[in-house]
C-alpha cells in the first residue's frame, strides 16, 4: 500500500493530490511503527507527518499554485546516483544482525542498564521517556535548541522578504 502511494505521488502532477497522499503515507508509516511497538514514534509521525506538515504544504500550495510544471530536462544523473545509493544501503543491510536478535550489539551495550534501571532509578515506567529525558538529557536539550533555531531561521527568512516589498511569488 505504501509503495502504491509513493508510485502515485511520483506520477501525479496535481500537487494537491500529492500533498494529501503524503499525509496518507505518513499515516501508513505510523501504522507500521505501531506494529513495530514504537508507539511514541508512531504518535510523532501521525501528528507531525500527517498533521502539521500537510497543513504547511497546503499553505505553501495556496501561495504557489497546484500543478507541477513539466520537468525541463530528464534528470538521469540524479536518478543514477540515488539508485547507486540505494544499492549500497541494501548491500549494507545484509551485514546487519537479524531483526530483534538479542545477541546483536545494540542490545549488549547500554540497553540492559536502561531496561533494568529505568524504573528504580527514575521512577518512570515508560522507558522511552526515561531515556529521552533523563539518561540522554543533553541530547534532548540540543534537540530542543535545534527546533528553536529552525523556527528562528524561518522567522528571519520570511520576515525579511515581507519587509522588502510584499509577497513576491516564491521560486
Amino acid at each position: 500500500m505504501m509503495a502504491a502511494t509513493v508510485a502515485v505521488m511520483i506520477v501525479q502532477r496535481n500537487l494537491f493530490a500529492v500533498v494529501v497522499l503524503s499525509g496518507v503515507y505518513s499515516f501508513l508509516m505510523a501504522t507500521v511503527l505501531v506494529a513495530l511497538d514504537a508507539v511514541d514514534v508512531a504518535m510523532t509521525e501521525a501528528s507531525v507527518g500527517a498533521g502539521i506538515s500537510t497543513v504547511l504544504l497546503l499553505g505553501a500550495l495556496y501561495l504557489t499554485g497546484a500543478t507541477e510544471a513539466k520537468p525541463v530536462a530528464r534528470p538521469w544523473l540524479p536518478l543514477a546516483v540515488s539508485l547507486a545509493t540505494v544499492g549500497i544501503l541494501v548491500y549494507g543491510t545484509s551485514d546487519l544482525p537479524p531483526f530483534s536478535d538479542p545477541g546483536s550489539p545494540i542490545f549488549q551495550h547500554v540497553e540492559p542498564r536502561y531496561v533494568s534501571g529505568a524504573l528504580p532509578e527514575t521512577g518512570i515506567p515508560n522507558i522511552v521517556t526515561a531515556v529521552l529525558a533523563s539518561y540522554r538529557g543533553y541530547d534532548t536539550l540540543g534537540e530542543t535548541t535545534v527546533v528553536f533555531t529552525a523556527g528562528a531561521g524561518v522567522v528571519a527568512l520570511l520576515r525579511r522578504r515581507r519587509g522588502r516589498g510584499g509577497a513576491e511569488a516564491k521560486p
Binding site: 508512531a42 504518535m43 515508560n126
Partner: peptide
C-alpha cells in the same frame, strides 16, 4: 508521557 506513549514533543505538536 511518563506512563504511556507521549511526551513534550507530541503534546506541543497537538
Amino acid at each position: 508521557g511518563e506512563l504511556g506513549p507521549g511526551g513534550g514533543f507530541q503534546a506541543g505538536v497537538i
